[in-house]
């Protein structure tokens, strides 16, 4: 299995297809969650908290200094499966320009991963909350 840091989103979709079984897919999400770099505790504030989540989720974003600025995302949660889902989001968004982020069909990615079927409505709403936060940050950066 590729690790979260080297895998592309297409490779992840392929792996989920091969596994087929939610129990195994869930295990991959947990592994991805475990590999997610920890977030500095000082960054976990009310301001960085993503609302609409059952478990605690924090997310911060910054634009890189490069000639072609890309969004750098740091995220964390106290739930391992949620951290795995954050990894999926990072995989889909990290290293992309704000405009590229706004163009990503994230719903399509979740659907191809089968997450629309396997996650509870509450968790799907939580996931939508995380995506909304990323898109908000990207939209602000794109407009700047």
């Amino acid at each position: 299995m590729s690790t979260a840091s080297t895998m592309t989103i297409d490779e992840l979709i392929e792996e989920f297809d091969d596994l087929g079984d939610w129990a195994d897919q869930c295990e991959v999400l947990i592994d991805m969650g475990r590999e997610l770099p920890p977030m500095d505790e000082s960054l976990k504030t009310e301001r960085t908290k993503v609302h609409g989540c059952q478990s605690n989720v924090w997310m911060v974003a910054a634009l890189s200094d490069d000639a072609r600025p890309v969004l750098e995302l740091i995220a964390d949660s106290d739930a391992m499966i949620v951290k795995g889902l954050l990894s999926v989001i990072l995989l889909a968004y990290s290293g992309r320009t704000p405009q590229e982020i706004l163009d990503v069909d994230i719903e399509g990615i979740f659907r191809r991963l089968g997450l629309d079927r396997h996650l509870s409505t509450a968790r799907r709403n939580g996931l939508a909350g995380m995506v909304k936060r990323v898109r908000q940050i990207a939209a602000e950066a794109a407009a700047a």
């Binding site: 939610w22 129990a23 869930c26 947990i30 059952q54 478990s55 949660s77 106290d78 739930a79 391992m80 499966i81 949620v82 968790r123």
Partner: peptide, 20 residues
């Protein structure tokens, strides 16, 4: 262990509990 992780993994085994 987070309550959400636990509830999700119990569900895989067919055990219906609530978390939150």
């Amino acid at each position: 262990v987070s309550a959400e992780d636990l509830a999700n993994l119990l569900d895989i085994k067919g055990v219906c509990v609530r978390h939150g």
